[in-house]
Amino acid sequence: MRRDSGRGGVVVHPFRGYGSQREAFIMGRVFRQPGRLLAWQEGGMMQDVVDIARRVVRRGIAEARVDIRLGATHASVTTDRDGYFYAHIEITHTLPADAIWHTAKLQVISEEDAISTETEVYIPPASTDLIVISDIDDTVMYTGVANKLKMLYRLFVETADRRTAFPGVAALYRALYGGVEGNRKRPMLYVSRGPWSIYEMLEAFFNMNRIPVGPILFLREWGMTLKRPWPRKAEEHKSDVIRNMLALYEDLPFVLIGDSGQRDPEVYTEIVKAHPDRVRAIYIRKVDDDPARDAAIAALAEELRQAGCELVLARDSVSMAEHARDKGLISEEGCEAVRADTRAQQQRE
């Protein structure tokens, strides 16, 4: 948005890719971005408002050809009706063992332009022992999904520096990323029902708060138009992402993190039932004061306990960190960092 200096035109935005030594997945979008009609003061509020509007009204370019090269492997795909492309690449050569990020080169050819660009693809190291999948909204940062109008305002209007991470979240996720030894570099996968148009803001938010950004943010296309001004339904979005990751990293256990405000406990319970022995722990951030909801989650926790998985409902990151330390998922130093981070953030507030 900033790099085009208000000119607009055809833009290629590849998202971070991910995969294994056998296969890789690369996603992105080709779209037409409107330009600014007037020149606003650089960095001013009116420019922010205009750029938000430009981001929302982007229109995808359908049937553009996307050629992708990852090392010696080549694949070609075309964009869908919304301008998105999804490439599944079977890796036929050996990737460098000392790297976890690999550069993929893309060339996009549409009726209007030909654009070359690059993106990064995350391949977990051989030492990876755990995959972490986390919700974003009301789990990592405060969104207020129960109030739809406030949620939409925060999604589209608030800049990254005005968004609030829950106390201790950054230290907890760094501890999970590093593991007991501190250098595991575990995949950190984040899922949201928010639209792909907020991808750049989320990247800035994660970097600003020093939260391990992991290989990818799994968002979705809302498909909003003047005739249909509300997002497409996506009840299975989160469970589909988790199931795909379970299949991709079939030899690794998982930790799932969510919140009590929506259906994360129910979705995660169904995942454990369908894939026994794959989930080491579930952490649910308590974001409401509903006794009936607490009782429902407690019943799910008991159900999961009998299936060999522990669900922890906690209002703060420290309780999650202490459980993760006791389970051997993070170090004592990582747990203490969560305590210190929580205290420091609460004092600032």
Rank of each mutant, 00 (worst) to 15 (best):
D4K: 09
V10N: 09
P14W: 02
F15G: 03
F15E: 09
M27W: 11
F31Q: 04
F31S: 10
R36V: 13
A39D: 12
Q47N: 04
Q47F: 01
V50H: 05
R54T: 13
R59N: 11
R65C: 06
R69S: 11
D82N: 14
T94N: 14
L95G: 00
A99L: 14
W101E: 13
H102N: 08
H102D: 05
A104L: 02
K105G: 07
E111T: 10
E111C: 06
E112N: 10
S116I: 03
E118L: 10
T119Y: 08
V121G: 07
A126M: 09
S127T: 11
L130V: 01
V132R: 07
V132H: 01
D138N: 05
D138L: 02
T139Y: 04
M141E: 15
N147I: 04
L149S: 15
L152D: 05
R154G: 03
A160P: 07
T164A: 12
A165D: 11
P167K: 04
L172I: 02
Y177N: 12
N183L: 05
P187W: 05
M188H: 08
Y190M: 14
V191D: 01
S197M: 14
E200K: 11
M201W: 12
E203W: 11
N209W: 06
V213F: 14
G214A: 02
P215G: 14
P215M: 06
F218R: 13
L219N: 00
M224P: 00
K227D: 11
P229F: 02
W230Q: 14
W230T: 14
P231K: 04
K233Y: 06
H237A: 05
K238G: 00
K238F: 01
A247W: 08
L252R: 08
G261C: 08
R263D: 10
D264P: 05
E270N: 15
V272F: 00
K273R: 15
R280K: 15
I282F: 00
I284N: 13
P291K: 11
I297G: 01
A301H: 05
A301M: 04
E303R: 10
R305V: 03
G308Y: 00
L311M: 07
L313H: 01
L313P: 01
H323T: 13
H323N: 12
E332H: 13
E332W: 12
C335Y: 01
V338D: 08
R339E: 04
R343Q: 10
R343A: 12
Q346Y: 07
R348W: 03
E349T: 09
